[in-house]
Amino acid sequence: MNPPRLRRRPDGGIVFDQLTPAFLHVLHELPELLGTDQPDVVRQRLYPPPTDDDQTNQEWERLVHPDLFSLIASAREIVLKDLQSLATSEPSDDAPLGIWSFAIPGAHIPGWLSALNAGRLALGALHELDEADMQDELAFEEFSDKQFAIVKIYLLSWLQQMLIEEQGDYPPQTLDEIEQWEQHLNADDDGPNDAPQDDNPEDADPSGDGDEPDSDDDEPETPG
């Protein structure tokens, strides 16, 4: 069975091809993972406190969380809408349940990135997955709920990684960029936790459109 593929449409959208039923199953779980009735453990991960000061954190909940809730709800709506466009090819010996594909309009890609990430985090929180869990080889003798969750996270990672590569502007392409990159890495070895002092960050919107050129990164890796 071939792995899923992603192709760019002329209108800026993308199409996921060759999705197996396993991918479909996990994608259909995304809206539920992002619903409003999330368990506390999921909410705590998706909406973490910004400081160790209780008063500041309470203000944060009051002022900032509604916006963050809206972003997740918006991403969930996008997922629900796009999943309706699922189409299947005829079943074959190789794929008795058919091979599925679905299209994501360009304007929906940031929402999908957010939904895939939030869904993976929700699964991780629900099953209390830690660093060791995520570094285990996927060779389970008994399939527990926890291990099943890890498989789902990896399936979602695959799709998320393809979207990131489609959106990202890395890795460095020119010799100057490579040299600059290596300098950063060397500097990191000397003093890895230096604070950047830039005071003029570019604006960005997680639900906005990113139109950076292609990238070519490795397979999904966790953690970040």
Binding site: R120, L121, I164, Q167, T222, G224
Partner: peptide, 16 residues
Amino acid sequence: DPITLMSYVTMVLQRL
């Protein structure tokens, strides 16, 4: 955190 993709963190830091 053990779940977030390294490439996603990199992308977010670039964008923000």
